[in-house]
């Protein structure tokens, strides 16, 4: 495997042996990567081969070894294997029994790294697996202890409980939030890369194309602090590309926006869907509404010669969805369906009636034909007659079907009983 070292220019130099490492340290290198990579060509997360250690960068010049050890005891974590004094604070390393950097392991490792960083209130920008850290110069604590990732799982338990404060926005409106606007106004030298990726995700999530986002962020890069080492446009291009190469379109991490802007920020995603078959319950609900609206538009009773398939096509849904909606409506008693054969070669006619409509129509028609003035007793009369008709129909045809009741009611509302009979 390969590691990388660098001097203050951060240009990565690959290292494969301890002898080279020693030589390069002598030559004045300042940084190294604690984790190892597949090739000498790429110092990127997806090129990682071995995960060797968890580490944090505490940015507090007043922090001491005993502070770190106390915090470890509080959090029920093992003490670090190595604590190094830096100009601005401390670097702490927990050596882990090396883990192959598979996608899964890397995901877990990254979560742990972030959780560890948060638990020590350390610098979140340092919490990436391919990070450069300072070659230890002033070692304050060194213990050859080796741990496993599972020794740190306790950190993940309360991860979900971490408080999110204020400033809620709907994810779609992310770009209008003051915290994001602050980032769009330009950032300092040390957060450019993270800010660029975070903003690229925000743009992508809000529906910007790759080209549009790139234009926005190149313009944004001109607003950034130039610093001693200006952020190159090619780096912006690479970062935007990596955000657009992600398989899923994800909103930016709220924690990053908080960290980079220093402002409270969180959002809710309203489009979130339940597990299992994504989108299915929603589709059913929509279909149900559409279907009921169609029947109501036809006056509460829809009589059609169209097949279920054709009806589904008219509603713009699949036949399967419509079938399950109809079945559910029948089961809950909100809908009655009756089918009439029209005669040789003329196909069938189907009538869908909404139950509440049936009652209302009943009372209305009762009024019209002067039976009880639309009162409850009038409705009951119609139903009783309908039942009588059904029995008669069943006598003649031998058919006994619940759906015929609705059909009889419909006829009785239009014609006198004796004609129906």
């Amino acid at each position: 495997a390969w590691c990388f070292v660098a001097n203050k220019s951060f240009r990565p130099l690959p290292v494969r042996t301890f002898a080279t490492l020693e030589k390069l340290i002598d030559a004045g290198m300042i940084y190294f990567t604690p984790n190892a990579f597949f090739s000498r060509k790429a110092k990127t997360t997806d090129a990682l081969r071995w995960l060797n250690a968890l580490y944090i960068d505490i940015d507090d010049p007043a922090a001491t070894v005993s502070d770190v050890l106390d915090r470890c005891a509080e959090l029920n974590l093992p003490p670090p294997s190595l604590i190094v004094k830096t100009q601005h604070g401390l670097h702490c390393y927990w050596k882990i029994k090396r883990v192959r950097a598979t996608e899964r392991a890397l995901k877990l490792y990254s979560r742990l790294l972030r959780a560890l960083t948060k638990a020590f209130d350390a610098d979140l920008r340092a919490a990436t697996a391919e990070r450069f850290l300072r070659i230890p110069r002033v070692i304050l604590h060194f213990d050859r202890a080796e741990y496993e990732l599972k020794d740190f799982f306790s950190l993940l338990e309360d991860e979900t409980l971490s408080a999110q404060s204020g400033g809620r926005v709907v994810a779609r409106g992310i770009l209008d939030h003051p915290a994001v606007k602050k980032l769009l106004g330009g950032v300092s030298e040390h957060s450019r890369n993270h800010a660029c990726f975070t903003l690229a995700r925000a743009f992508r999530y809000c529906g910007y194309s790759y080209a549009e986002t790139l234009q926005e962020l190149l313009r944004w890069n001109r607003r950034n602090d130039r610093g001693s080492d200006p952020h190159r446009d090619s780096e912006v291009r690479a970062t935007v590309k990596s955000a657009y190469n992600e398989k899923q379109i994800r909103p930016p991490a709220a924690s990053w926006i908080r960290e980079l802007s220093g402002m409270p920020f969180s959002y809710r995603i309203f489009e979130k869907r339940g597990g299992g078959k994504p989108g299915r319950p929603r589709k059913i609900e929509e279909t149900r509404e559409k279907f009921i609206a169609t029947i109501q538009a036809a006056g509460g009773t829809l009589t059609t010669c169209d097949s279920r398939k054709k009806l589904a096509a008219q509603l713009g849904v699949s036949e399967r969805t419509l079938n399950s909606v109809v079945a559910a409506l029948i089961a809950e008693g909100s809908l009655t369906v009756s089918t009439t054969r029209l005669g040789r070669g003329k196909g069938t006619e189907t009538t869908y009636t909404i139950a509440s409509q049936l009652e209302a129509a009943c009372s209305e028609s009762c009024k019209a034909i002067g039976r009880g003035g639309g009162s409850e007793s009038g409705m009951r009369q119609v139903l009783e007659d309908a039942i009588e008709c059904c029995f008669k129909f069943s006598d003649v045809t031998g058919r006994n079907h619940g759906k015929d009741l609705a059909f009889s009611v419909k006829l009785l509302l239009r014609y006198r009983k004796k004609y129906v009979l």
């Binding site: 495997a1 301890f18 190595l82």
Partner: peptide, 20 residues
């Protein structure tokens, strides 16, 4: 020397990833 100590710590961290 600090240099040797640094190398010793790095050897420990990078053990198995780099070769002799």
């Amino acid at each position: 020397s600090p240099q040797e100590k640094a190398l010793e710590a790095l050897r420990f961290l990078l053990d198995g990833s780099l070769t002799e």
